[in-house]
Design a protein around this nucleic acid. Structure first.
Length: 153
DNA sequence: GCCAACGTTGGC
DNA sequence: GCCAACGTTGGC
């Protein structure tokens, strides 16, 4: 099957593109929304690429790219009672939440802000640009991926 | 800080 | 199964 594209949202105060660049790779944990969980667990494939999105920051928008480098794994932060994403209903025997290993690919020289994105013809239907879009793991079409990565050069 | 949009919870 | 109340997200 052809490579697919995604968008991963994060608040840079929690985990930024610079953190990811420093770490090289990370476990993408803490997703606690069923639709995002289903995408993460069922739809993604190892080798897929994703846009890295900063929300609630001085520049909200796409700041780089990364690659999905594992199959779906149970999210261990769900059964860590000290973790802010702890969920007592999840257990190692019966995990509810899942995560992926994600590898750093590139940091854009210039972030592509939300208003930049709105000005690019062809991105009108992009999920993150829809009113009230709160999904933290979203699908991105190949066309959208190409328009954005081309813009980043 | 405001508030719209959305998801979840729980009483009935 | 409905829906009001509540909590959270996230742009502005």
């Amino acid at each position: 099957m052809a490579k697919q594209y995604w968008l991963l949202k994060t608040e840079p105060t929690a985990y930024s593109i610079d953190d990811m660049k420093r770490d090289g790779k990370t476990q993408w944990t803490g997703v606690r929304n069923y639709q995002a969980r289903n995408t993460l667990r069922d739809l993604m494939k190892k080798g897929d690429l994703a846009l890295f999105y900063h929300s609630s920051s001085d520049v909200t928008g796409i700041v780089g790219t990364c690659e999905i480098t594992s199959d779906a794994l149970p999210d261990p932060t769900a059964w860590d009672s000290k973790d802010s994403h702890y969920d007592a209903k999840s257990s190692p025997a019966n995990p509810i939440w899942y995560c992926r290993e994600v590898k750093f690919k590139q940091k854009f020289k210039q972030p592509i802000s939300l208003s930049d994105l709105r000005n690019i013809k062809g991105l009108e239907k992009m999920v993150v640009l829809q009113k009230g879009s709160r999904l933290s793991v979203q699908p991105v079409t190949e066309k959208e991926w190409e328009l954005i990565t081309k813009q980043a050069k």
